[in-house]
Nucleic acid binder design. Structure first.
Lengths: 217, 217
DNA sequence: TAGATTGTTAATCGATTAACAATC
DNA sequence: TAGATTGTTAATCGATTAACAATC
């Protein structure tokens, strides 16, 4: 019964890997060469034992008495996640939110390339965002298929989210990042990730009222 | 040992409440009056038993044989989360992302009001976003204190995130929503929520490569 | 009453953590 | 070698779920 690669990996582990990656990249930029699980734990608020255990799901990457070699661990995690090569994505919605996503340099820095931007408004179609020309959303399915693109980002008004999602599912998109508050339904072979600022605010609000009750008491 | 209110509530429960709220609001808009845990489970992909159990942490809101009365459950959850009244927030960063957040109607619809928008660029200060005039970020601490605002949203370039976060912590902000990829450090009395599109993409990427390996096999 | 669905228990499952031998 | 830190085990902790009696 080996430690690595065989078992199904808990979702929590996968969720933490990008966090490790962020911290490691920051550490390397700060000039560090190695990092112990204690240091990573301090920076991420994750228990060091858990970090070590998470990593052993994929192999043993550290040196006892030393820690983890940052560059090589970055490389390992990137390979695990599949971010060791470039991924193209399509973006639907050329409003402020779409523009914010397209402008965001961090995407390219981490291996994501916005291949095309779509909108359905004649006032948007034909305009540029960065160096990409906004196209009619009707052209999306063809481009997704032709270029074999698997990631789609939804940044349209909430009413249009389900329609766009349906188009993406039908076109062969495999991962959807939905920036809309609408709870969209997707086909079984598509992974959906919702990001709703309001839902996040509501969640933190609970803790806000809690700490204030405590302060009152 | 009563069922309600006393025990510490698991974080997972609190994370799911906003999801229930979203679905309930959609159901009511669709003209429904009651919803069973089975129906909610279907719409949220959450196990019905878990939904019932989550709710009993706070009381018993359903009618056996009938389900949950939607309006009253919405009301209950809003009270639990503290979203039964309006919350003001400040937004720092008047770029595309800031504009997208400020423009977003869903905020107001769920009880959040953008009280002020700040930037540090002379080209932004004095311009309007919606009906709010962008102010110099230097004015932020005073306004937060004077208006007793407890929620801050960071939508600035990554390099500036820690500085803005520090200012917010020092001003008395209690909840920070960070839309920057930078992992900021906050004081102990502040709740931080990070939203990084790249981190979310990386996370879903893992499942992408997985399903494709399976397809190959 | 009969049918439906909750609230709740008890069993399962899985994730987190402390501890330590292995080893750099 | 002595000190440090990993990899890994075993114990703990908590969350999920199935099942069903209570009850609308």
């Amino acid at each position: 019964m080996s430690t690595s690669e065989n078992d199904r990996i808990p979702e929590g582990v996968i969720e933490r890997l990008p966090t490790y990656l962020s911290v490691l990249i920051q550490l390397r930029q700060d000039g560090c060469y190695t990092a112990s699980s204690a240091k990573l734990g301090d920076l991420t608020d994750i228990n060091p034992a858990q970090i070590r255990r998470d990593l052993t799901h994929f192999g043993s990457f550290g040196k006892r008495g030393v820690g983890y070699e940052i560059v090589s661990l970055i490389d390992r995690i990137q390979r695990i996640l599949g971010s060791d090569h470039t991924h193209r994505l399509v973006l639907v919605g050329a409003g402020h939110l779409g523009a914010a996503i397209a402008d965001y340099n961090g995407l390219r820095a981490r291996g994501f390339v916005v291949s095309a931007i779509f909108d359905n408004s004649p006032s948007k179609i034909g305009t540029r965002i960065g160096d990409i020309i906004v196209q009619d959303v009707e052209a999306m399915p063809r481009i997704v298929r032709d270029q074999n693109i698997r990631i789609g980002v939804i940044a349209v008004p909430p009413e249009a989210a389900q329609t766009v999602s349906d188009m993406m599912c039908a076109s062969g998109i495999r991962v959807i990042l939905n920036y809309t508050p609408t709870m969209v339904r997707v086909t079984d072979d598509v992974t959906l990730h919702n990001t709703d600022p309001v839902r996040e605010l509501l969640h933190t609000l609970y803790y806000l009222s809690r700490t204030e009750s405590v302060a009152r008491a």
